[in-house]
Write a protein that binds this DNA or RNA. Structure first.
Lengths: 213, 213
DNA sequence: GGCCTTGTTGCGCAAGTGTATAAATAGCCC
DNA sequence: GGGCTATTTATACACTTGCGCAACAAGGCC
C-alpha cells in the first residue's frame, strides 16, 4: 500500500506547453489568485513540484503563459490578412470580420486578457509583452489601410494614416470587448457587420451595394 | 513598554469609504493577489481585524469596492451630458471629449477596471456590477444619438439606433483603452479629436468647418 | 468625572502558499 | 536485460493568508 503514483515521462517541449495551457486554464477559471501551483499541476496531470523543474518560479511561468496567449491572439488575428487575389477593401473587411467572430471573440480569452493586463501596471514584463503584441497589431492595421486608400487613389499623409489606424484599432477592440462580455446580446455576424460599416465610414468609403459582402 | 497603539474612532460611513479607497489603491498597485487584508488595512491606517467589523469578509469588501469604482466612472462620464443650451451635436462631442481625457483616461482606473473584469467570469456579483454600469452608459449614448439624428431631420429605426450606439460605444471604449495603456503616444486632445471624428463619420454627419470646435 | 457602549487593537489559528530537496522510477543506451 | 540519468513524485518548511476572539480604550452620556 501507499504505492507511489505512476507517471509518464514527456518530451520537454510537450510538457512545457501542457503546463502553460494548464496555467491559462487556471487563470481563466479562478483568476490570478486562484491559479496556484497545485491547481495548475492538477490540471496538467502532474504534481506541483514538477513545475519548478521547467520554470524557475511561478512568476516566470505566468509571464511565459501570457506571452503565449498574446502570441496566439495576434497570430490568429493576422492570419485573416493573407488572402491572395482579393482587393484591399475585401482584405480589410475580412480582417475585421475575423477579429469579431469566434474564436477571437471568446469569454475565456477576454478574461485572460483582462486579468493579465490588470497586472501590467505593476509588472513591467507583462507590460512589455502586451505592448509588443499591440503595436504589431496596429502596424498591420495601418498597412492595410494604406493599401485600401491607395486603391481609392487617395494619398493620405502619415498623420492621417496614423489617426485612421488608431480609430480602426479602437473600433475593433471596443466591439471585441462588447462581444466577449455580452455575446448573447448580438446575433451572429452582427458585430462584424457593425465593425465593417463603422470602419468604412471612418475611411470615407462609399457604401457598396448589397451592404458588405 | 509594549504600549497599545493609539487610535481614533471614525464615523461609520467615513471609515467604510476609507477602507474601500484603500482597497482600490491596493488592487491598483499590487493586483488582486497583492491586495491582502493587511495591506489594505495598513494603507487605511488601521489594523486588519477592523475590516471584519465593517464587512462580512474580504469578498464583500472587493465587491463593494468594484461597485464604487463603476459608480464613480459612470457618474463622471454622464456628467458631461448635462450641458444646457447646447446643440445635441455639441453635447455628443462634449460627452466623447470628456470620456477621452483625464480623469477618465487614467492608468490606475484602467488597471482596476481590467483587474476586476478579469474576475467577472468567475464571480457573478462582479459581472452584475459591470453589466449595470455598462448598460447605463450605452443607454445614455443611445439617447444622445437619437437627439443628434432628430436634429438632422433623420428618423432612424430602433435597429439602426442600436447599431449606432454599439459602434459609438466601441469607439469610446477602444480609444479609452489605448489612451490608458499608452498615454505618452498621444498628444493632448488627440484621442478626443480622433473619437469625435470617427463618431461623426459613423453617424454620417457632414464635417463642420474648422474641424470640430 | 465615571460609566458604558462599541469601535479598535493585538494575537492566535488552521489552511494554503511558493519553494527546497531527497527519494523513486521511467525509459533510453549498450 | 541491467544500469544510468533525468524526469517525476513526495514530503518538509517557512511564510502568508483570511478569519475568530478577547482585551482594551475612545468618546458620548449622565
Amino acid at each position: 500500500m501507499n504505492a507511489r503514483r505512476k507517471f509518464r515521462r514527456e518530451g520537454e517541449e510537450r510538457r512545457r506547453q501542457d503546463l502553460i495551457d494548464a496555467t491559462l486554464d487556471s487563470v481563466a477559471e479562478y483568476g490570478l489568485q486562484g491559479a496556484t501551483l497545485r491547481t495548475i499541476a492538477l490540471r496538467a496531470g502532474v504534481t506541483a513540484g514538477l513545475i519548478r523543474h521547467y520554470f524557475p518560479g511561478k512568476e516566470e511561468l505566468l509571464q511565459e503563459a501570457y506571452a503565449a496567449l498574446v502570441g496566439r491572439m495576434t497570430e490568429q488575428a493576422k492570419a485573416a490578412l493573407v488572402m491572395e487575389d482579393a482587393s484591399p477593401r475585401q482584405r480589410l473587411a475580412a480582417f475585421v470580420t475575423a477579429n469579431l467572430n469566434a474564436p477571437i471573440v471568446d469569454r475565456r480569452v477576454f478574461s485572460l486578457w483582462a486579468t493579465f493586463l490588470g497586472r501590467a501596471n505593476a509588472d513591467p514584463a507583462l507590460a512589455r509583452a502586451h505592448r509588443e503584441g499591440y503595436l504589431g497589431f496596429r502596424d498591420e492595421v495601418e498597412a492595410v489601410v494604406a493599401e485600401v486608400l491607395a486603391a481609392e487613389q487617395r494619398k493620405p499623409d502619415a498623420g492621417e494614416l496614423r489617426r485612421h489606424a488608431i480609430a480602426i484599432n479602437a473600433i475593433i477592440d471596443g466591439l471585441w470587448i462588447e462581444g466577449c462580455l455580452a455575446a448573447e446580446m448580438f446575433s451572429p455576424g452582427e458585430l462584424a457587420a457593425i465593425g465593417v460599416n463603422a470602419i468604412e465610414a471612418e475611411l470615407g468609403l462609399t457604401p457598396q451595394k448589397g451592404g458588405n459582402q
